[in-house]
Design a binder for these strands. Structure first.
Lengths: 191, 191
DNA sequence: CTTTTGTCGTTAGCCGCCTAACTATCGGTC
DNA sequence: GACCGATAGTTAGGCGGCTAACGACAAAAG
């Protein structure tokens, strides 16, 4: 979803000019950052448009993929139960959000919610036949969209791209940003 | 905001395996796609955490930046009026959303809403002194976060990165995805 | 066995984004 | 001068995230 800074990215010379006023502004870093957010947002939109045609939001799709991915592991039995907590963990939403997502998917008949045999606190969420059919219908065009989006990139470019993205991803997830201590103590305070 | 597919990205061999079942799946394209969405999401989170400490959402920040960016152009007069419609266009949200964002910012005293002198349908949104002070307080650590995030990348890597991101961005915004015609006629239909 | 601690799923309430519809106003046409 | 389409801003309602709190249950501590 569009949750962005500026729609048209600033030209590099503007960044250079702004850097004179703000010594902390690193022009090339800012440029990469803005392009990354913008490109990620557009790529997101490309597949979201397709999924929306099947009345599937990105969150719901994540749940279905998590259950389907799990199916791959144990394909002998058609059921591949996961708990809502595991689903939340894998798709990166809270357990509370997962309750709503599973609610919707269950109402639509794509998953079932059954009591866990061992632990009565837990539930087992399974993909139904209908859910599998939906995925079988959605996935091929979904994959085609991703392939289409990356078509301008050669194979070496793709490898380089993944390497650079991984660098940023690693940085973002394994380190703590600068002056996190200074600012975390600041309470919002005023409206 | 976390609105993602899978939190832990699949290994490449899994993609290769899945590609045998789905001929439309391009493993390298999918890998780039998933990494792009994931990295974009994490980068987004890094700055969002900081802004949240000042009770500023990404949407509100976009409005402030749009007004501030406009300030740069005409710095002689402290007022830099933009209409809500222009702000919506620049930040990539709808006019309805902009109404809410400006409401909040106005209540907090960061912007003012005044009648447009020429056209009585329009409003003029201006940054207040207090809004400028907020930006002056927020921007330096904001820039430091972006610089910190990109620190692992060398200058040549950054240039390559921007080039690759631009390729994807251009593809996503200037062309229409495959089979868009086939699917756009499909009505969601069922819950 | 009882108590404590922790986990699971759910609920309630907030916020930001969307679409669709409405009102007020402008500009052009007759 | 009176209509008429287009446009600006707002409102109403929906949806999908979030946090905080809850009751049910399991596992460890006594």
């Amino acid at each position: 979803m569009p949750h962005l800074l500026l729609k048209d990215l600033p030209r590099y010379e503007c960044l250079l000019e702004a850097a004179r006023e703000f010594p902390d502004l690193d022009p090339s870093a800012t440029e990469v950052f803005l392009h990354l957010l913008r490109a990620g947002d557009e790529a997101f939109r490309v597949v979201e448009e397709h999924l929306a045609q099947h009345d599937i939001s990105q969150g719901r799709f994540g749940v279905l993929m998590a259950l389907w991915g799990n199916c791959q592991d144990a394909e002998n039995k058609n059921e591949k139960p996961l708990t809502p907590a595991e689903l939340a963990e894998r798709t990166g939403v809270t357990r509370a959000t997962m309750t709503g997502l599973v609610d919707t998917l269950e109402r639509a008949g794509f998953v079932t919610r059954t009591a866990h045999p061992d632990d009565r606190r837990m539930m087992s969420v399974c993909l139904t036949k209908r859910g599998e059919k939906l995925l079988a219908r959605i996935l091929p065009p979904h994959f085609r969209r991703m392939a289409w989006l990356m078509e301008p990139l050669s194979e070496p470019e793709r490898r380089t791209f993944v390497r650079l993205l991984t660098k940023v991803l690693t940085r973002a997830t394994t380190s703590t940003p600068p002056s996190a201590r200074d600012e975390e103590t600041v309470r919002p305070g005023r409206a």
